[in-house]
Structure formats: structure tokens, C-alpha cells
């Protein structure tokens, strides 16, 4: 298992999406999110996108006001995770059209469905944007 959690956090440090692929209690999650958000938000754009925290390695990338943070195992390819974040953003972009924080907030379940099509149990499922989005578009049409 490579990916251990995916977080989306805004500039103020508020969580906008959280998906964990391992079990943490509510308290542990709150603490973890607080710590890593503080660590990552304090870094400037010239510094590298990788932060080591506890036994996680966190790969993060900022898009406008939203930070995407992905916690991975030690032997995961950090650069590939950066690309993965970009793919996730592109996919959301294609669906929402210029995705922003509010899109994710108000369509939390959709954002989760997309992520679900991309990552399962911490592993990559699909890297083609249209394959990822097909079931979601079908669903939209049906309802």
C-alpha cells in the first residue's frame, strides 16, 4: 500500500476533504491534520514539496487557495505522487470546470467518488481521466 491518506486543506488550515486508507481514531486524525497542515503551510514555494512527519512522508502541492496533501509510505516515489496530485486536480477540473474550494466543499461526495475511481486501498486504480469520470457522468445523467 502506497498512499495512506489524501487531504485537501484550504489556506486557513480547514480540512475540505479527507480520505484515509488506514484506521485512525477521530482524535488522532484531528491531531495529525493539525500538525501536518501547520508544517506544510509554513513552507514557502521554493522549498521542496516533501515533508517528513512521524512515520509518514507527505507530498503536497498547492493550487490557488487549496493545498493537496498526500501521505505516503517511505518507499513511495515522491515525484510520482506529485504527478498523481496533478492528475487528481485535472480530473476535477474537467468535471467541475475550473475547480475551486467551494466546488469540493459543496460536492464533497462527488469529489470522493472521483477519488474512489482513482485510488483504492492506497493503490492507483486508473490514470485515464475519461475512464475515471465515465461512471460519475453516467450517474449525473441518471439523476
Amino acid at each position: 500500500m502506497g498512499i495512506r491518506f489524501v487531504l485537501m486543506v484550504n489556506k486557513q488550515g480547514q480540512t475540505r476533504l479527507a480520505q484515509y486508507y488506514e484506521y485512525l481514531t477521530l482524535e488522532e486524525r484531528r491531531a495529525l491534520e493539525g500538525e501536518i497542515v501547520r508544517k506544510c503551510l509554513a513552507r514557502n514555494e521554493h522549498q521542496c514539496s516533501f515533508v517528513e512527519h512521524r512515520n509518514y512522508k507527505i507530498v503536497y502541492r498547492r493550487y490557488a487557495s487549496l493545498f493537496f496533501l498526500v501521505g505516503v509510505d517511505d518507499d513511495e516515489n515522491e515525484l510520482a505522487i506529485l504527478e498523481f496530485i496533478h492528475l487528481l486536480v485535472e480530473t476535477m477540473d474537467r468535471h467541475f470546470g475550473n475547480v475551486c474550494e467551494l466546488d469540493i466543499m459543496f460536492h464533497l461526495e462527488k469529489a470522493h467518488f472521483m477519488l474512489e475511481e482513482m485510488v483504492m486501498n492506497g493503490c492507483l486504480v486508473e490514470t485515464s481521466k475519461s475512464n475515471i469520470l465515465t461512471p460519475i457522468q453516467l450517474m449525473d445523467k441518471a439523476s
Partner: peptide, 10 residues
Amino acid sequence: AKLMFIHMLG
């Protein structure tokens, strides 16, 4: 859907 949002907030 609401609970998921509340859960996300911790």
C-alpha cells in the same frame, strides 16, 4: 451526505 461533511470536520 451531511454526516460525511460533519465527519470530515472531525
